[in-house]
Simulated assay, not measured.
Amino acid sequence: MAEVGQEPRRITDPKMMRALAHPARLAILEHLNTTGEATTATEFAEIVGLSPSATSYHLRELAKAGMIQEAPSRGDGRERVWQSPAASWGLDMEADADPETRAAEEALLATYLDRDQARLRAYLARAREEPPEWNDAAGLTTSTIYVTPDELKAFFEAVRAQIEPLMQRNRKDAPPEGARTVRVHFAAFPDD
């Protein structure tokens, strides 16, 4: 059984992409990869806002696709506990992908972007209610840079290196006083 913390896994199978292209399933996998904590269907139900039985269905679908797996029991073995076999998942958009794979990629990316845009909009709607120190620290910016592919890759890797030690799963046992969950949405892409 793989443990959370290994190298990121790549999603290449359209079946896996379709399984993940659902807001509840994306939230389940995000929770597992963010926290690294094994979680039950009842606990997930609170996170995704569904009933435990509906959540169990989504867990089974993710397990069928190989995105999650059963974790060792936390007690008497009566409840199923789930974990992710990887610390994170990534998507490679291959230029020569067949139409089925392209459609699955597009569905997954649309679900992912819809979720992140909804989070950003929710924050912007409440930004004035945030404590000043949080409102001053948060940011939204767009910059246009002029780079080669190698420079863009190095830039992206440098940003990832800054984020990695601050990730929730890496600080969950001893977060600094006053720390909150903060979403970092970063995109770098060619713009014609």
Score class of each variant (00 low, 15 high):
Y57M: 09
S73A: 12
D76L: 11
R18P: 00
V182K: 03
R160G: 04
A107V: 13
A41F: 03
T144Q: 04
P52Q: 06
G178L: 05
R169Y: 06
A187E: 15
E177V: 11
H31M: 06
V48N: 01
A63N: 07
H185G: 11
P8E: 14
I68S: 02
A154P: 01
A45Q: 10
E100D: 12
A54F: 04
L120S: 13
E61D: 11
F186R: 00
F155P: 06
L50S: 09
A95I: 11
T34Q: 10
A27L: 01
P99K: 00
E106Y: 01
T141H: 00
E105N: 15
D76N: 15
A71L: 07
R115Y: 01
R80W: 08
P190H: 06
R180N: 02
V81I: 11
A154V: 14
A187G: 15
R171N: 07
P190E: 10
K15D: 15
Q83A: 12
E133R: 09
E151M: 06
G139H: 00
L124N: 06
E100V: 13
T144R: 07
T101M: 01
T12H: 09
D76G: 15
R128F: 04
Q168V: 14
A158M: 08
A86V: 15
S73H: 06
F186Q: 02
L59H: 04
R10V: 12
R169S: 11
V4R: 12
I47Y: 05
P176S: 06
T111E: 13
R80E: 09
